[in-house]
Amino acid sequence: MASVRSRGTRRGLRLVAVAYVLVLVAVPVGVVAWRAIDQGAATFWSSISGPDAVHAFQLTGEVAGIAVVINTVFGVTVALLLARYRFIGRGALNLLVDVPVSISPIIVGLALILVFGWTTGWFGHGLQNAGIQIIFATPGMVLATVFVSLPLVVREVLPVLEEAGLDQELAARSLGANALQRLRRITLPTIRWALAYGVVLSVARCLGEFGAVRVVSGNVSGSTQTLTLLVDERAEQFEPGAYQMSVILIAVAALCIIAISLVRPAEEK
């Protein structure tokens, strides 16, 4: 196509595209990375190893870990139901799964408070009498995180299941495999790369959730403060550590992207 588009136009478009991505993404990320290591390794270490920071790391890992497990089980189940069964409300379920991505995380938090909050929620009385605290505690943070990352696994696994069709499943059944054997030997190997992809996306999303968690957590330092909340607090109060912790989160995000780019070609084979 060398002569179909002039070389000048092509160079110009390339320049604009690259410049836009660099100015919007690469340069800002670079500035943060530079600020984080600017003051040396000792500062870097001390600003991420204080008790608040260590607690935030632990809590984030805990919340994200539980949320990813829930979403993986949920995602595979929903994908299997949508791909293999017909039932009333199938279309509605398919639609409902996508709802969370288009809702502001603040509204997600608000919605959860209005149902599960002790003094504010529909179920507040019952929960309080039973002594179960959801809002301003870990369960609420897990719920919020699950909510915002709900469709990620489903949307990766479902197309693969639909494309694979039911032939293999029927063949395995005709050969005498029971449901569990079919799941382990046919279904899971079919979806494993899509599942891995969805899980990595979920990990990235769950570690990074901020708005919804901020609303439901109460943001108590050393108690319900996740990493992103801590970054916000340090940044707003101009305390050290925001850049350093951000760099760690950036590194995790970069790892996720690299993992995805490794998984993606495998999936397409």
Partner: peptide, 13 residues
């Protein structure tokens, strides 16, 4: 890779 960063990066970061 840079295109994907905004999806993977925590919003506060």
């Amino acid at each position: 890779v840079l295109i994907d960063i905004p999806f993977a990066l925590p919003t506060i970061v």
